[in-house]
């Protein structure tokens, strides 16, 4: 946390029509950090993620690796942010390897059939990291939900961007895959990437994240290490649930328990 921030946002606001979706959000996050972005439905989590990546217009300033986001071209942004949207859409039954190779698109490798050595190596690394090497030739539409989730993750890892934004990557996965996906993201953070994960699972957030960001009604109401940022009071006020809390193997355990 003492390192210099790689991503800073100050007074970030987003309005859709007259509705203010995000209001005056400021944050600064360093390399090698896994940040969990939590908040009730409609709090503006996806909007914040997309605004950070420059995928929708916002007010305020964003700085990434020392440059103002607004000064970067689309392609430069694409090299700095790997973005995994919700639901991992895959419209055509392309082979899994080609999907992963699309992660190299921002680096100029637009044709998966013709990758340079660097690009091919990045694809192999990403596929190994997510354990999908064996699925390379399978059409993605024929894969199971878990397999598809891993292919989607491999695609964003293949970008090898300094910042990885993932929007509910664990949704609709069984517990094993949830843990698996979070473990991969943790690994990515441990190797120097800034990872921001949107999740509804307070337990996973508490267990894997270095920092929790709590968003409510478009405002960042709490940020810091999960143990403090996800305190009993905050969760009760924001999520309207009481939690069961414990320590297990020196990690924080938070389980939503009853309505507040």
């Amino acid at each position: 946390m003492s390192e210099a921030a790689i991503l800073t946002a100050s007074s970030l606001s987003v309005s859709l029509g007259k509705r203010v979706v995000l209001s005056e959000v400021s944050l600064a996050l360093p390399r090698g950090c896994l940040a969990a972005l939590v908040g009730p439905n409609g709090a503006g989590k996806t909007t914040l993620l997309r605004a950070l990546a420059g995928l929708l217009p916002s007010e305020g300033t964003i700085e990434v690796c020392g440059d103002a986001l607004s000064s970067l071209t689309l392609r430069e942004r694409a090299r700095r942010f790997a973005y995994l949207p919700q639901g991992h859409q895959m419209h055509w039954p392309l082979p899994a390897r080609d999907i992963v190779a699309l992660g190299r698109y921002p680096h100029g490798a637009v044709d998966p059939a013709r990758l340079t050595g660097t690009d091919a190596a990045a694809v192999v690394r990403a596929m190994q990291a997510t354990d999908v090497t064996g699925l390379g030739d399978r059409p993605v539409t024929e894969l199971s939900g878990g397999e598809r989730g891993r292919v989607a993750l491999a695609r964003v890892l293949a970008v090898e961007a300094p910042i990885l934004l993932a929007d509910e990557p664990t949704a609709a996965l069984d517990p094993r895959y949830q843990i698996e996906v979070m473990t991969r993201l943790r690994t990515a953070a441990d190797t120097g990437t800034l990872v921001i994960v949107v999740t509804h699972d307070l337990g996973l957030a508490a267990r894997f994240a270095d920092i929790a960001l709590v968003l409510s009604e478009g405002r960042l109401v709490s940020q810091g290490p999960p143990a403090t940022a996800l305190s009993e009071t905050i969760i009760e006020n924001i999520f309207r649930v009481r939690t069961y809390r414990a320590d297990y193997q020196r990690e924080t355990v938070i389980v939503p328990w009853s309505e507040a």
Binding site: Y83, M90, L94, L102
Partner: peptide, 14 residues
């Protein structure tokens, strides 16, 4: 081809 991941992903790929 990039669009087969959806418009949002394609946009994020540049």
């Amino acid at each position: 081809r990039a669009l087969s991941l959806g418009e949002e992903s394609a946009q994020s790929l540049g």
